[in-house]
Amino acid sequence: MVAPAPIVEMKNIGKRFGGIHAVENVSVELRPGEVVGVLGHNGAGKSCLMKILSGAMNRTDGTIMVNGEEVALANPIEARHCGIETIYQSLALADHLDAPANLFLGRELKTRFGTLDDKRMEMEARQALRQLNPNFKNITDTVLNMSGGQRQVIAIARAIYFNARVVIMDEPTAALGPSETAMVAELIEKLREQGIGIFLISHDLNDVFDLCDRVMVMKNGQNVGTHAIDEVTKDDLLNLIILGKLPDNWSPRNLVAS
């Protein structure tokens, strides 16, 4: 099988805060329909790396190619134009607005008079949200009154509605209960089927084994290893996360075969 060309290639990415290297010389790529897990300790630099890709943070070193073209990604708007959508660790929703207003925040639909087209936004939002979760009701409530799962659905719907090709998820299930976590896992599956590439930051190794095709482990801002999920065990990953290296006697093993 010939692997499709990567949608995103990050090369030698670095980010310094004064003397601190939050991210150092990290390279990683993402292909369509692929879920790449980004693992590492607290403060390893996972969020920083992903913020660089989403345009929320400017890198100090390195190049990023999207569909083979070099891009600057100086701000979130530019990243969105490249088809990169992000679902943030702390859910980035405006609490006092309703679901449609959040879904279209910064990209509001307008009437031909230049005023907000709330009717159309509500219709489109209803459709987008129902697609992901048929039980989504009262979409015109302020999101303040919604459950963590509903809020996550809004964030994901936002990514899908605007035809994302790359979705970054920073601990999407950290604030959710078990059933909502299962729902998000389903959504990730749906995104993958549509050929969207996903970076998934997670601390839950079970999720990682369930959802990811490949994993990248970060430690102290560096990439200490990128592996196909079926060539490593949980213990291997823990070794990478904690010690920054694989066990001495390690060799790629195909767990599916064994």
Binding site: A56, P76, A92
Partner: peptide, 16 residues
């Protein structure tokens, strides 16, 4: 956007 910035400035910035 005025309402959005007041409810969550960070979210608004990230939303563009």
């Amino acid at each position: 956007h005025i309402y959005a910035v007041g409810s969550n400035e960070q979210a608004s910035r990230l939303a563009g």
